[in-house]
Design a protein around this nucleic acid. Structure first.
Lengths: 338, 338
DNA sequence: CTGAAAGCGCTAACAA
DNA sequence: TTGTTAGCGCTTTCAG
């Protein structure tokens, strides 16, 4: 059986091509009986509209692009899952485009992707969400896009955000509530500003609780497991080490835990450790890690929804969505001084 | 500046449309001087061929589909990276299509993807590589595809495989060499036959070393961290527990390590633990996990190469590629009885 | 509510 | 080595 075209369906149903098109695209203004007749013909011929013909005629690809640069595997997968859920609902597909920021090709590559009509719009994940050069290029090229978790959003571009800072604040307060007074903090990679901002929540919580911010307890990490371990080494070598360490992400927190094991420090009795992100390692490590879970898939789904709305020409009224994190208390935190 | 078409380029270069097409597609039989002239025009106009027009005319999408069902995040990401590397080299894009096996829609969905001309061919990852129903459907629909790590390949369909069984054999031999005589084994999920086969390597190694296969040391896991922990509970509760446990994947091995911690068993002094896959958790856990690394990205890249070769009509001569694993010895294994 | 005609921008076959 | 002529299968005007 050779592939049926829209003409075959039209002939079989005894209507015009255009009417079939209307039915396929669920456009209004088709009499119910006509619609049924056409649908029957479609089913009989197992007709599937040709994607490329539609794209050429309608001048859009029905494909969205997902741009990312190396956050963790589980993050990317969650984003993909969420984005795909929304895409499918709308008959869109998702093209993945990992890329290296700081490369010259990045911008040309991305522009080509859109100019060739391979994708209709883009989803950006951190740290790309904060690449101003990229964002500006997209804006001035008139390319629709939505950013996930950007830190700067003074521009009126749509984005989806979490209350990260608030969550970091809450986590710090929780540690204080557990009796901790010297709480170490491992700052995230300076280029990942979303992660960096968690520091702000930490600072706010200290202030709120009348604790002084001891700079010797704040160390700079780079988001990796190894950098977390390095930071822990620094914090734990001190004559007056902290009784708790809050790392800006789980990978670094895992590094802290390993370093503590190597120093025979018992957790949480002698040291409480908290992370951020709830990556798989968080509950595969010993002791299991107290952390913060972001609704990543939901954020991505929301981002796609916003993007699709843009593509329909409806200028997004509220071009942003804020979603909530949740603190997950596991075995790595406990009361201070026990 | 409105988007330039092939006609604009042809006019500017003073040649025919077809010549431009030849240059763009790097076809032979174009005089160098002509080629240069055309290229100059392309550059001047910043011409980018329309993907949909090419697809419609050439009757292919220049997109490959990646089908997967829930292996670990890091596995999928590695596959994506490898597949994309090859795709880009060939001017192809990659569409991701996670799906649930055992659902009725799976087959129709996948068929629709191809029938609509969204993708030209498919890459299947385990456990989908072993879904005979899917494979047969693709074959009889004449859809080009390549499988990653299938366990059954009597059919002549192209695939990419690793020497898993050999690696499991080697790992077991290594444990024996370290003095272990009672080596527990955690079998993988029965539906993931690739993982299941690792058991064969274990059995072969015991035999080779004149050790009896003690069935009480072999327990059935389900690939998850939790199931690994459950299995460890069973193995370690025995009156004569094993001195080493070899799990069919890292997640389960991580479960073993956590369970051992909870029982205050020192590793590797009292218990050696080995995994398979080298997932991120393998070196984020304490003690870091001895495991086997598969060249996943390379396999995926190879699979794409085989697929593209098929698409070019060249029937793949040797429709298969075998790639090698590597054992990574870390802290979780050591000499027996110390 | 339905239809007719006109492309969308390219590639493929065939000429020259 | 290059050009000409037809479409590919849809959506989009614009008319009825």
């Amino acid at each position: 059986m050779v592939k049926a075209t829209i003409d075959d369906v039209a002939a079989l149903a005894g209507v015009s091509m255009k009417t079939v098109s209307r039915v396929v695209n669920k456009e209004p203004n088709v009499r119910a009986s006509t619609r049924d007749k056409v649908q029957a013909a479609i089913d009989e011929l197992a007709y599937r509209p040709s994607q490329s013909a539609r794209s050429l005629a309608a001048n859009r690809s029905y494909v969205l692009g997902l741009l990312y640069d190396n956050p963790s595997a589980s993050y990317v997968i969650d984003v993909q899952d969420g984005a795909l859920a929304s895409c499918r609902r709308a008959g869109y597909d998702l093209l993945i485009h990992p890329c290296k920021r700081d490369t010259v090709e990045l911008l040309t590559e991305v522009l080509a992707l859109v100019r060739q009509g391979r994708v209709d719009g883009l989803i950006l994940t951190p740290p790309l969400s904060d690449m101003t050069e990229l964002v500006q290029t997209l804006v001035s090229a008139g390319i629709p896009f939505v950013r996930l978790s950007p830190t700067e959003y003074k521009d009126a571009c749509p984005y989806v955000q979490t209350n990260d800072q608030e969550a970091a604040y809450d986590m710090t307060c929780r540690l204080i509530e557990l009796g901790h007074r010297r709480i170490g903090f491992i700052v995230g990679h300076p280029d990942h500003r979303a992660v960096t901002q968690r520091y702000t929540g930490y600072v706010a919580a200290l202030k709120e609780n009348d604790l002084v911010l001891d700079k010797s307890l704040v160390v700079q990490g780079y988001n990796s497991f190894d950098s977390g371990r390095e930071c822990a080494r620094e914090l734990l070598s001190s004559a007056t080490p902290p009784s708790a360490i809050f790392a800006s992400n789980d990978d670094m927190a895992a590094g802290v835990i390993i370093e503590a094991h190597h120093r025979s420090i018992t957790m949480p009795a002698e040291l409480s450790v908290a992370g951020f992100d709830d990556t798989p390692v968080a509950h595969q490590i010993y002791p299991s890690l107290t952390t913060v879970r972001q609704p990543i898939a939901e954020m991505a789904a929301k981002a796609v929804d916003l993007l699709l709305k843009q593509l329909k020409g409806k200028s997004v009224q509220i071009p942003a969505a804020i979603m909530s994190c949740r603190i997950l208390e596991r075995e790595s935190t406990g009361e201070a001084g026990r």
